[in-house]
Design a protein around this nucleic acid. Structure first.
Lengths: 315, 315
DNA sequence: CGCCTTTCTGTCAACGATGACAATTTCAAC
DNA sequence: GTTGAAATTGTCATCGTTGACAGAAAGGCG
C-alpha cells in the first residue's frame, strides 16, 4: 500500500479498487492520519484557503462582512482566514507575504493607503487579489466598490430636502485623494444644487476620530446644522460630540453616516445612513475571487455596487 | 552560490562572509526573491504564525481582543490569523485542521460547545493550544479564564444593593453546563443573601437573542425588576426589548451585562457591566502561548483573571 | 492459452526550503 | 612552506505530498 494510493483515496481520485479504498479509509481512521496540507500546497500551489484582509477589525463593518464572506467561501469547500493591517502598508506587506507564501487561492483586500504598487507586485507573483473600494487596472486584480459618489449625493440631498443648509463633512484621514469618493459626491451634490458646502475635516475613522473631528469642525464653523460622516462609527462619535457640546441630534444638527452597520439601529438617536449592503458586497467579492480561481483569465471587469439611503432618527 | 548559502543569508545565520552576504542580498533584491514559507514550515514545523479562533466575529468582544492579541503577537515577529467557528464544533474542526496543518506555532481558541475532546486530539497531534474560558487538563493545552463566578456575584450584589429583589438572568444557550459559571455565581449570590433568584432563560448570545430571551423572561415572570445578562450584546437586546414593552431602563428594570465592550458606553442608557479586561486577557493568552512555544514543557498552570464592576446608567 | 485492453497500483522525481555534515578556503603561527 | 584551527561554502537527504509514467493484475475474446 503505497503513499500514492493513499493520496488517491484521500483526494477521491478515479481508479482505486473499492476494496482498497475501504482498507485505506479504515487505516486512516485507525491511525488518525491527517494529510499535511503544507506539503500538498507546496506541490499543487493551491491551499484551499482564502484570505480576507481588512484595515481595522474593530470597525463593525469588517466582522459583519467577514462572516458573510466566510459563509460564501465555505460553499466552495475553502477555509477563510482573516487578517488586519491597521491601515499600515508595511503591516499589509507582512500579511500578504504570509498569505501568498502559504499559497492561498486568493485574497480579498481593503487596501491600506498607498499600497497599490504593493498589490500590483503581489499580483505579478501570482497572487489573485480582489480589491475593495479602489480601482487598480492590473492583471490578476479585480475591483469591487460601492457607488459612493451617488451615496454622498443621496445623503446630501436628504439633508437639503429637510431644510439643512450649512452641511459639513467628516472625512477619513486614511483615504488617499483618489479614494475620496464620498467627498467628491458631497461637493457634487452642492454644485448640483447651486449651493456652497460647509467645511470638510479629516480624522481617523473611529468613534474617537469622529468626536475629535466634530470638535474641529464646530470650531471652524459653529453654525453647522448638518454633518455627513465618513462611516457610521464616525457618525456615532459625531453624535456624542455634538451632544457633549449641548446641542441636540437631529434637532440642532442632523447626522448622516455610511455603512449601515447593525449597531446603527441600536444607538439613540438611530442613525440615518447610506447602506453599503454587506450581503451584496460579499456576493460580488467572492464571485470575483471564484472567477479568478476557476477561470483561466486574469482580468475581471470592475464592479460598482448600488447604495441606498436608510432614514432613521439622526437626520 | 548554493541555495544553502542564500538560506543562511535570509535567516541571518552566523558564518557568512560579509562580501557574500552583500552579493546575495543584491541578487535577492534584483530578482525579487521571496522565501517560500510553505517549504520552510514543512521542514522546520514552525511557521511564524499564530491562529486566533473565535466563535462569532460579530460580537464586538472578539475584534477588540483580536486587535490586542495581534499587537502582542507581532512583537515576537509572528503574524496572526483569525478564524471563526460560528460555535459549530464541525467548523472548528475544519479551522483547527487547517491551522494545524499549516504548522501554526500555536492557537488561541474560544472553544465551541462540546469540543474539548477535539481540542485534546489536536494537542496530541502537537498543536499548542490556549483555551479561553474553559478548563482542560491535558498536555499541550493552557487555560485562561475570567473569574466569572465572582463577576456574577458582583453584578447581583450591585442590583441587590440598589434595592432590586426580583432579578432574572439571561444566559447563553451555547454554554455547556460546565461552562455556566455566570449562572453559578448568580445562584451563589442569592444563596449568600438568603434570597431567591428569579428565572433563568437561555438564548443565543446576540442582540436578537437578548430580545427574544427577555420576551420569554418577562412572560415567565412579569414583575422582574432587574436582569443579569450573559454579555453586553445580549444586554443591549434586553434593553431594547424592555423598552419595546413600554418599560424603562433602569427605572422599571435594571440591566447588567458582561464584557464591557466599547459600545456599551455609547448606547443609551449606557450599560452597567462586569468588565472582562481585554488587555489583561490578551497579555495572558499570549504569555501562555509564548511560554509554550519557547519553553520545552507542555504544561501551563491555569490562569484566572480578575473582573471588575463598571457602573453606568443601566443599573 | 496468448494477446490486448482496461483497471489498478507502485516508483521516481519534484516542490523549496533546512539539518547534518563534509569540503573547501582563509589565515595565523611555527 | 607546512600545519592546524577557524571560517566559509557546498552536498546530500529530508519534510509529506502529488504529477508523470511505468508495471502489475484483471478481464474479454478468439
Amino acid at each position: 500500500m503505497s503513499a500514492r494510493t493513499v493520496s488517491r483515496v484521500v483526494n477521491n481520485e478515479y481508479g482505486v479498487a473499492e476494496a482498497t479504498r475501504k482498507q485505506v479509509l479504515e487505516a486512516i481512521e485507525e491511525l488518525g492520519y491527517r494529510p499535511n496540507l503544507l506539503a500538498r500546497a507546496l506541490i499543487t500551489k493551491r491551499s484551499g484557503t482564502v484570505g480576507l484582509v481588512g484595515g481595522d477589525m474593530t470597525d463593525p463593518y469588517f466582522p459583519a462582512l467577514a462572516e458573510a464572506v466566510h459563509h460564501r467561501v465555505s460553499e466552495s469547500g475553502r477555509t477563510t482566514f482573516f487578517a488586519c493591517t491597521g491601515n499600515d502598508p508595511h503591516r499589509q506587506d507582512m500579511v500578504l507575504r504570509s498569505l501568498w507564501s502559504y499559497a492561498v487561492d486568493g485574497v480579498i483586500v481593503f487596501p491600506a493607503p498607498d499600497s497599490i504598487d504593493q498589490l500590483r507586485g503581489y499580483a505579478r507573483l501570482g497572487l489573485r487579489i480582489v480589491v475593495v473600494d479602489d480601482v487598480v487596472d492590473a492583471p490578476g486584480i479585480a475591483c469591487v466598490r460601492f457607488d459612493l459618489v451617488t451615496g454622498a449625493r443621496l445623503g446630501v440631498r436628504h439633508l437639503l430636502d429637510s431644510g439643512r443648509r450649512r452641511v459639513g463633512m467628516l472625512a477619513s484621514e486614511l483615504s488617499p485623494p483618489r479614494r475620496r469618493r464620498r467627498e467628491s459626491g458631497f461637493r457634487a451634490a452642492f454644485d448640483d444644487a447651486g449651493l456652497d458646502h460647509g467645511a470638510i475635516v479629516r480624522a481617523p475613522p473611529t468613534v474617537q476620530g469622529g468626536e475629535a473631528g466634530i470638535d474641529r469642525l464646530l470650531d471652524l464653523q459653529p453654525d453647522l446644522d448638518a454633518i455627513l460622516a465618513y462611516n457610521d462609527v464616525m457618525a456615532i462619535g459625531a453624535v456624542r460630540a455634538v451632544e457633549a457640546r449641548g446641542r441636540r441630534v437631529p434637532d440642532d444638527i442632523a447626522v448622516v453616516g455610511f455603512d449601515d452597520v447593525e449597531l446603527s439601529a441600536y444607538v439613540r438617536p438611530a442613525l440615518t445612513t447610506i447602506r453599503l449592503d454587506r450581503s451584496l458586497l460579499s456576493i460580488e467579492v467572492t464571485r470575483a475571487l471564484h472567477s479568478f480561481i476557476d477561470a483561466p483569465g486574469d482580468r475581471f471587469d470592475p464592479v460598482v455596487l448600488p447604495v441606498e439611503l436608510v432614514v432613521r432618527q439622526s437626520a
